[in-house]
């Protein structure tokens, strides 16, 4: 049962239109480092020369100190689930065949981390504080994209 009282488009006079634009998004100085790293199976962060924080994804500058980050450093592909959710419907509201688990993962030694999918885990098994590790796409299939990490799986 829907609590909304929708009015369908054809019930009022209308004109159809769209606002489609195509985009080419530049990776940027820091993004180029990060995605080149993913292709090699490495997660790259950037280190602030002032406060020492390691930002993941890397940033050309430290958002806290506003200093240019001077060093690109590799961080472990392991971390901790900071929070998670279980999706039962997809982006257009369609029911998913299998629920999907998404988490914010803080990588070891880094400030910040990644939003990614959790795999090899049932929704009811996921918990905040869970230790997880990246499962990488096979080397030949990596494209320098966020999906070069297939998902994070629980580790003992």
């Amino acid at each position: 049962m829907s609590l909304e009282r929708p009015r369908l488009p054809h019930e009022i006079r209308h004109w159809f239109g769209d606002m489609e634009c195509d985009y080419v998004y530049t990776l940027g100085i820091a993004g180029e480092k990060f995605y080149a790293g993913l292709k090699e199976g490495r997660i790259i962060g950037s280190k602030c020369p002032s406060c020492g924080a390691i930002w993941v994804p890397p940033s050309l500058y430290c958002p806290e100190c506003f200093e240019e980050t001077s060093e690109w450093v590799e961080v472990p592909d392991e971390g901790t689930v900071y929070t998670f959710t279980v999706a039962y419907v997809g982006p257009d509201g369609e029911p998913l065949e299998e629920p999907e688990v998404y988490a914010l993962i803080v990588l070891d030694g880094a400030n910040g981390g990644l939003l990614h999918k959790l795999g090899e885990v049932r929704p009811e098994e996921a918990y905040i504080g869970m230790r997880v590790k990246a499962v990488w796409a096979p080397e030949g299939e990596r494209k320098g994209a966020i999906t070069d990490i297939k998902y994070f799986r629980p580790v003992e």
């Binding site: 530049t26 990776l27 940027g28 993004g31 180029e32 500058y61 506003f66 240019e68």
Partner: peptide, 13 residues
Amino acid sequence: RETGRELSFYAAK
């Protein structure tokens, strides 16, 4: 080559 965020940083700095 820079993102908009990176360009902003250079001008601001």
